[in-house]
Design a binder for these strands. Sequence first.
DNA 1: ATCCCGAGGG
DNA 2: CCCTCTGGAT
Length: 220
Amino acid sequence: MQKKERYQSLLNYFRAQQPEPETELHYTNPYELLVAVILSAQCTDKRVNMVTPALFERFPTPAHLAASHFDEVFPLIKSISYPNNKAKHLIGMAQMLVNEFNSEVPAGVETLQKLPGVGRKTANVIASVVYNAPAMAVDTHVFRVSKRLGLVSQTAKTPLEVEKQLVKNIPQEDIPKAHHWLILHGRYVCLARSPKCGSCEITAWCRYYEKKHPISPKNT
DNA sequence: ATCCCGAGGG
DNA sequence: CCCTCTGGAT
């Protein structure tokens, strides 16, 4: 199957399933999303959503967070991964927002990456979700699912490689949605350890499934 | 033992 | 490129 056809088939399927996918992180403004995405590194969205309500109540704006102390932030995020690093990153991030960006979340990926705790993946999430920019954030789900579905080359080794190939092949206006489609498929169907191929509706286009269920070469 | 919407530093 | 950070679920 040709690459273009594979992309079109899969995008059509996902669009039919969920025309307007959304983040499962809970937030009400760009600042809250930025905090939630920083917290989500190597942690499930569900667990992040358990700590953010108290966090947002205590620190409703970047100024509140910027003026806080490590010992005020740490206890509130203690139950998620890397609370030590993340507490420091959150405060530093808020201070930079206040001091350099007038307490607003900047739009550009390059600028976003200057914020403490914000790497390429987080910057791409903000750019695409908040500003609807054609930026593809490649997290563990997008990385795994893209390779299994044959959207990118099987030899791709880094998230950046996968990102470039996806951006090149997905229509610009679909990129923010495709990001969520791939994540949701990865989270609920195409699981890392034991993917639910039995209930998956797109195995016909899946390289991983092909490999696991090879068609016997009868008459070739 | 492996995974979860990674980032920073060596 | 590698390593460390580091909690909870499966």
